[in-house]
Each structure stands twice: as C-alpha cells, then as structure tokens.
C-alpha cells in the first residue's frame, strides 16, 4: 500500500489478456473490492460533509462551547472527548487483555477437552450480544449497584490514588467512566480472547510437545514457548480490541453520563468522541458549524480506527479475524 489504493494498482491484470477478459477481470476484482469502495465512500462523504471547515488550532483545545448565544465565541475543541475516549478505551483494553490472555491460555492449555470445546462458543456468544442490551443492563441494573456498592467501596479503598477520589454526589447516578470501562471491558474481552485463542491454537503442535517433552509443565511451555511465539499476534489483538473499544458508541453512551467536561475522577461522567457524535447530533441541526465539527470528529474517529485496524491486521498476518459467533 505504498501507492494510492485503487483497484488497478492492487492487482495488475496479467499481460496478454483480451479486452473481454480484462473487463471480466475488472468486474470480478470490483466485486472483491466492495469493502474498499465502502471505506472510500465513507471517508469521501465525511470529507465532503465537513465542508472543509477549518477550525484552526482551537479544534484541538479543551474549549467546547457549541451553541452559545453569541455565535462569535462558539468553540469546538474536542480535546475533552479525546481524553474520555482514551481513558475508557485504554483502561478497558488493558483489563481486557489481561483477562483474555488468561482466558485464552486456560481454554487452550488447562481446560479438559470437553470444557474447552464448550468455553469457546460461550465467549464468542458474548461478542454477539447487541451493544444496546449491554447498555440497558448497565444503565438500569448495574448503575444503581455501582452507585451504592462499588463506587463507595473503591473510593474507600483506593481513594488515596489520584483519580479515585470522589464525593458521593459525584457518583450518585452510578453512571460514569468506571461503569463505561466495566461495560467496555466485558464487550472487548470476547474479541481479544478469540484472537489470542486462535493464535495460540495456530502454534504448531510439535512446538508445544517439544516443550513438554523437555519436562516443562503446561504453564512453563505456555510462558516460555507459546506466548513468545505469538507476541505479535497478541499485540495486534490489542490493537484490534482498541479499535473496537474506541468506536463503541451505544453501550458507552448509555452508561458514561455524558458530561461535556474533563472528568475529575474515574467515577465522574464523561463523553467519548463516539458518544459525542450521538449526543450532540440533535442540536447540530440548528448549528451548522457544530454539525461540521461533529463530522470532522467522526473523520478523526474513522482515521484512528482505520489505522489501528490496518496496523493490527497487517501484524496479525492472517486471512481473517474471529468475530461474534466464533467464525474464524
């Protein structure tokens, strides 16, 4: 992909084909490249819709003042939301990676075969549950529990750490960063687990047996032979999980509290870039500049997910990734 991506560059038709063959090839390649057209269409539409509005450097500031009485002081700095996105995705991803490494290791090496066969579909199924179902579960059922039990407990035990201190009014609703992180974590775990698990399974069996035949235990074989063998895949699983986490909108919107400020603690409400796109769309109809700002934020989100996914997939170096339902 050193050059501009485009069908003609991707695969040159072999020389000496007739015009008819060439067009056949072209139409076939055209079918194969439909995802690419969609990606191009998405980027082009967003670029066009943004009207090439230049917000200057204030676009990167923390100053978000989209619909003031005096339009001249309107400001569209999305730094706060970038922070919200970064905190939720990064922490959720870190937790998810630890969990999914453990789960994948357990499924591949430590569970008896019949449980291992059962465990994989169950984790995959978790990836298939609609995000809106996670959202309503988080908002209606978990949020009160968090505000009454989890949040006070965490403030009590971890309150001395920066970012973990809050007054009861600040977590009264239960919604906030911590709940969003929790929901995001269990949403990302199945995806990263499946990726790590498949990488572990793709390791040649001979290598594992070699480790065991040397008198290593299952854990030592895992730790010193298999994990080093799939380092790259683990990293790319992290990237792909990050792409999912940062783009997740609906479930996060329902539990994050949607406060348009920098959060003071991990219990406070916040907004991510993705949830901003939803929460501000209503007012955007009356403020054309706000709409353009949102479109540009959407573009930023698109670029982030595009590059993260592209790097992750190239590192993974496999034909496919596992998705909900455990298709490989």
């Amino acid at each position: 992909m050193r050059n501009q991506p485009g069908v003609a560059r991707l695969s040159n038709p072999p020389g000496g084909m007739s015009l008819r063959q060439f067009f056949q090839w072209l139409s076939g390649a055209a079918v194969a490249m439909i995802p690419l057209y969609f990606i191009i269409a998405i980027v082009a539409t967003l670029v066009y819709a943004s009207g090439f509005q230049n917000f200057g450097w204030s676009f990167f500031s923390t100053n978000w003042n989209p619909n003031p009485n005096d339009p001249s002081v309107a400001a569209y700095g999305w730094f706060d939301f970038a922070v919200g996105s970064a905190i939720t995705s990064a922490i959720a991803l870190a937790l998810a990676m630890v969990l999914s490494l453990g789960l994948a290791v357990c499924i591949v090496s430590f569970l008896p075969p019949f449980l291992s066969r059962l465990a994989a579909p169950v984790t995959d199924m978790l990836a298939g549950i609609p995000s809106v179902v996670y959202g309503i579960w988080g908002y209606v059922i978990l949020a009160p529990y968090f505000s009454k039990v989890i949040d006070p407990w965490m403030v009590g035990t971890l309150g001395f750490l920066p970012g973990f201190n809050a007054t009861p009014t600040q977590y009264a609703g239960g919604v906030g960063l911590i709940l969003a992180i929790f929901i995001l974590t269990i949403m990302v775990v199945p995806i990263t687990t499946a990726l790590v698990r498949d990488s572990l399974r793709s390791i040649p069996k001979e290598l594992e047996e070699a480790g065991l035949a040397l008198g290593a235990t299952r854990w030592e074989t895992m730790r010193r032979v298999k994990i080093p063998f799939i380092q790259r895949s683990i990293f790319s699983a992290g990237l792909l999980g990050f792409g999912r986490a940062i783009g997740e909108t609906v479930a996060v919107f329902m539990v994050i509290g949607n406060e348009v400020t920098l959060p003071t603690s991990i219990f406070g409400g916040s907004t991510t870039m993705a949830t901003l796109l939803v929460s501000q769309m209503d007012s955007a109809f009356t403020y054309p500049l706000l709409l353009k700002a949102l479109v540009e934020i959407a573009l930023v989100l698109m670029v982030i997910s595009l590059s993260v996914n592209a790097i992750g997939l190239r590192l993974l170096g496999r034909k496919t990734v596992t998705g909900p339902g455990g298709i490989e």
Binding site: P204, E206, L207, E209, A210, G211, L212, A213, L214, G215, A216, T217, R224, V225, P228, F229
Partner: peptide
C-alpha cells in the same frame, strides 16, 4: 513432568524454539 525429564524425546521434524 518428572518422567519426561528422565525420558527425553526428539521428534520427526526439528522443533527449535
């Protein structure tokens, strides 16, 4: 694990780490 420490094994194809 202990058995395999005393009774080692070499495989058909080389399996270097």
């Amino acid at each position: 694990v202990r058995v395999r420490r005393r009774i080692g094994m070499v495989f058909q194809r080389p399996t270097v780490f």
